[in-house]
Every structure is written in structure tokens, then in C-alpha cells.
Design a protein around this nucleic acid. Structure first.
Length: 209
DNA sequence: AGCCAGGACTGAG
DNA sequence: CTCAGTCATGGC
């Protein structure tokens, strides 16, 4: 099973996912932090509470108030801290500046912020800054392993996709993998209807008669 | 009533 | 490098 065929199958099944759901780049960046190990539903309320907060207001807002506004997203103390940290970076490098900088350097900058790991950094690079970076998450690794791709490390998986798929597909592909996981992997019975079941080792082991 | 969400950090082995 | 514990709310 070729990776490009996986993409095609998912796209024809689900269509465009319109990621990242946000009104502007700052919202993508904040959202990337808020959604860490948290369902998107819980993040939406937090985003809503932050809507009236512009970037300039974000600098002066007290930590307590920030915590209260994002409480529904869980881990609210760390996340408030992390948002403060990324805003501090944006103080030195504007979003437009980051867009014009080399990918590797921006990735380094993001990873140097406490609370921003690889997935969050790459989400920002791809969905906020429009860089050619593929975002790997737990779903990606799980699905790939079930499809027989024997790779486990974050960078390994990322390189695998980036060498087997055109860069303009990264955006949609990650979104489609999340969609697939939500629809067919998370809830067990749905596994039977999965569009990739004929290639999935998990399906064969648990549901094939 | 648990278990899990569109993770990251820390410490231990 | 892998792995458990921690952080925390809300939906199912």
C-alpha cells in the first residue's frame, strides 16, 4: 500500500477537512497549545473566551484571567504559562517575520519554547505559517503501524511522509488521518466500516472472521 | 465510573 | 532511548 494511495482513499472518503479551524494565525498558534492531549470540543470554548483578546491585549492580560478563560481546555495552568511563553516569542519575531524565515530556524525557535514539543511546533509551522512540514501525532503512528509501515520515532515518521508525499498534501493528509481515527478507530464497532480495513492489521486480527 | 482527548516535561532505569 | 507519573477539564 503506497502512501499516496492512502491519501487518495481518505480524501475520496471524507473530502476536504478545512484545517486549521481558526480565524487567523494567532488563533492557530494558541489553539495548537490548547489542544495538547485535549479534545477539540473543550478547546473551542476556551478559544471563544479568547476571541476578544488581541495579540497586544494578550501581553498585558494577567495569568489568573488567562487561566480562567482557558479553564475548559484542561491543564490550564501550564497552558496559560505556555501561551505567555509563545507570546513572548512573538514579541521578538512577528508572525510575518516567522513566515519569511527558513523553516529549520523557526522550528528551532519554537522548540526552544517551554511547553512546545514537536507536534505543537509542527502544527504551528504547517497550519499557521504555511511551511512544508508534516505533523505527526499518536493517530498517525498508530494508523501507519496498522497499515504495516514499520516506523515508530517521530522524526522517522515525519521523514517518511515528507519523502513519499508532495508537500502540498501535508495539510489535508494530517487532517484526514485525525478524521479517520475519530470515525473508525476510536469507537471499536466502526472498525468494520473503515475504508482502509482491507489493509489494516488491527482489523484483520480483531474483526476478520 | 472510568477512560480518553488533535502532548510535553521530568525523573528513573 | 523507553516508560511511568504528572498536569485537569469535559464527554461518553
Amino acid at each position: 500500500m503506497k502512501l499516496l494511495n492512502v491519501y487518495r482513499k481518505l480524501y475520496s472518503e471524507f473530502g476536504p477537512q478545512h484545517w486549521w479551524p481558526a480565524d487567523n494565525e494567532l488563533e492557530v498558534i494558541i489553539g495548537a497549545i490548547l489542544t495538547q492531549n485535549t479534545s477539540w470540543k473543550n478547546v473551542e470554548k476556551a478559544i471563544k473566551n479568547l476571541k476578544p483578546i488581541s495579540l497586544s491585549k494578550m501581553r498585558s492580560i494577567s495569568r489568573k484571567e488567562l487561566e480562567n478563560r482557558i479553564r475548559s481546555s484542561g491543564f490550564y495552568k501550564q497552558k496559560a504559562e505556555r501561551i505567555k511563553a509563545i507570546v513572548k516569542l512573538l514579541d521578538k519575531y512577528s508572525i510575518e517575520t516567522l513566515k519569511s524565515m527558513p523553516v529549520d530556524k523557526v522550528r528551532q525557535l519554537l522548540l526552544s519554547v517551554k511547553g512546545i514539543g514537536k507536534e505543537t511546533a509542527d502544527s504551528i509551522l504547517l497550519y499557521a505559517l504555511g511551511k512544508g512540514i508534516f505533523v505527526v501525532d499518536a493517530y498517525t503512528k498508530r494508523i501507519f503501524n496498522r497499515l504495516g509501515f514499520d516506523i515508530s520515532g517521530y522524526e522517522e515518521v515525519r521523514k517518511f511522509v515528507e519523502t513519499n508525499l508532495p508537500a502540498n498534501y501535508y495539510n489535508e493528509f494530517h487532517a484526514l488521518l485525525v478524521k479517520l481515527a475519530k470515525e473508525y478507530c476510536r469507537k471499536k464497532p466502526n472498525c468494520r466500516k473503515c475504508p482502509l480495513k482491507s489493509y489494516c492489521s488491527f482489523y484483520k486480527q480483531h474483526y476478520k472472521e
